[in-house]
Design a protein around this nucleic acid. Structure first.
Lengths: 146, 146
DNA sequence: CCTTGATCTCAAGTTAACTTGAGGAATTAG
DNA sequence: CTAATTCCTCAAGTTAACTTGAGATCAAGG
């Protein structure tokens, strides 16, 4: 059981080799090294990366994803209980997100009805969420996640 | 009817003045200039910016949002028909997104059941969408939008 | 009229999430 | 045992979406 090479992982996940190395610097995978200094991964790393890919499709920032994965054992396969727990947390996040989208859709339906010509009563224009400024850099990812 | 200053717009939308100027370079607003070279906006620009903010919360990239707004008249208030049309398109996008999230949630439910211990049958691991590589830069926003 | 305060322009910095490239070793197929 | 792959590290480039700063001008209250 020599483990998987980074190329194997790339082939099986569809990720670029460079991306997998990048994820390592963010604590998402923690491969072991062989005699020649090459990375060797376990099958559980396939699962970690799949989770990352799924979560990213939802717009979650890497840091948050890494936090979700942090409690799992880094080198061994996690137990069924481990995965069940993190899956449930993830599910909660998805539910929140669906709720937010549904809410926005309903508001938009109102806008379609009114033609959005009245600013005072427009749900899109008055989203009931005020300011959320912190630091510099892109804002919208944080907004998605928040 | 002198129009709104950029500061007015910032106060009423919650956006930073710099952000509004930035949006101008991306064709999202097209203010007129007064004698002294200062920007003057109309009330319809409030609506444009609100739309941008709402769409961004959903993770849509600015370029796509700009494209949605492009068919609207830049300096005059759009007609009710204009807004209804773009609202409907937007709604379709929201629906797609809700569907994708719901789908993922269902898959995840399967994973919670199985403990995600079987890689071959894991819905998260086999998302039925293969590769989508184009150019450099961040990938996940494109993935969201795709 | 004069002093704040708001704007202007333009260049450069920032964060996230990666990719690309250079120069050099380790693996593996034949 | 080579030759071709694959992998290594490290620095630097890229895109999106803004922010920050400098130096200068415009506008508005007293």
């Amino acid at each position: 059981m020599a483990g998987l090479t980074i190329g194997d992982l790339a082939d099986r996940t569809g990720l670029a080799v460079s991306a997998i190395r990048f994820y390592e610097t963010h604590g998402i995978v923690a491969p072991v090294r062989n005699a020649g200094g090459h990375r060797r991964y376990g099958r559980h790393d396939l699962r970690r990366l799949s989770f990352v890919m799924a979560a990213q499709k939802l717009g979650f920032p890497l840091a948050e994803i890494a936090a979700h994965l942090a409690p799992l054992p880094p080198h061994k396969a996690p137990t069924k209980a481990d995965w069940t727990r993190i899956s449930k947390t993830f599910r909660r996040d998805i539910d929140d997100r669906i709720a937010a989208l549904t809410d926005l859709r309903d508001k938009l339906d109102g806008c379609i009805g009114c033609g959005c010509l009245s600013l005072k009563s427009c749900a899109l224009y008055n989203p009931a969420d005020a300011k959320g400024k912190d630091g510099s850099g892109p804002r919208n990812l944080k907004q998605i996640a928040g």
